[in-house]
């Protein structure tokens, strides 16, 4: 006969607490690095998606469709186990020494998220009246310069709430990195479970952390929506 006894002390102090804390830090680090890269890449893809050149547009479209329609987990496995055949040897060696699992997870998360961000940015751009682009062009700006100075700054401002949501998704998706041995939050919770057989406590701790993260960030987005976007709409 088994009786489960709860022991919350194991996750609030000692070795297991250290593990969970280390996991949280890794999750935040992985998410922060990936969101910055994903934003830059997404911006590039969004601009390419609206370019005049057909091949460029098609490339961007193919990129979007492919990476949005493939599971992130498969992409993570591909970059971790499969990329050695397509990456140059010296990059491979360097990554192996510095810890390939973190890099592979960051690459997969960046590429996957960039595809979603690109579409968010594109809808932001489409919401800017066409006349602005025409006005900028007739004032002598090139296409890229008009994008850079006139359209994108406005589009990005509108896109901030969906972008923050993408960041939240990314933080949650980063849990998949545990499958290739990145010691993030979920990995550590699982680790605590397998060492102590205290699954409930470990998973509760991890869940609370994820929830606090989403509550705080969602609250910030709501605040931004009310304070910044509405103020401007009213003006």
């Amino acid at each position: 006969m088994l009786n489960y006894t709860f022991d919350w002390s194991i996750i609030t102090s000692g070795q297991y607490f250290d593990w969970l804390l280390a996991g949280l830090i890794t999750t935040l680090k992985l998410s922060a690095i990936s969101i910055v890269l994903a934003f830059l890449l997404g911006l590039l893809i969004a601009v390419m998606r609206m370019a005049h050149s057909k091949p460029v547009r098609w490339f961007a479209l193919a990129y979007l469709e492919f990476f949005r329609n493939t599971p992130l987990l498969v992409q993570i496995f591909f970059w971790y186990f499969g990329s050695y055949k397509i990456l140059p040897v010296f990059i491979n060696d360097w990554l192996n020494k510095t810890g390939f699992e973190f890099a592979a997870a960051a690459i997969a998360l960046t590429i996957y998220t960039s595809a979603f961000i690109a579409e968010d940015i594109r809808s932001g751009v489409l919401s800017i009246p066409k006349e602005q682009m025409e006005a900028a062009r007739s004032a002598g700006f090139s296409y890229l310069r008009s994008m850079q100075y006139i359209i994108l700054p406005q589009a990005v401002r509108i896109t901030i709430p969906p972008l923050v949501n993408q960041f939240l998704n990314l933080a949650k998706n980063s849990s998949l990195a545990m499958t290739i041995g990145v010691m993030e939050m979920t990995y550590q919770a699982r680790q605590v479970e397998s060492y102590s057989f205290k699954g409930f406590e470990a998973f509760t701790a991890a869940t609370v952390v994820y929830l606090v993260l989403s509550i705080v960030i969602t609250a910030l987005v709501n605040l931004y929506n009310e304070k910044v976007l509405n103020v401007h709409k009213a003006a």
Partner: peptide, 20 residues
């Protein structure tokens, strides 16, 4: 949300029984 979470955890605490 936090309160609800705590309630859920409490619920889990009560109802949990390992497979006999």
């Amino acid at each position: 949300k936090l309160v609800t979470l705590c309630m859920m955890v409490a619920l889990a605490t009560i109802t949990v029984k390992a497979a006999q």
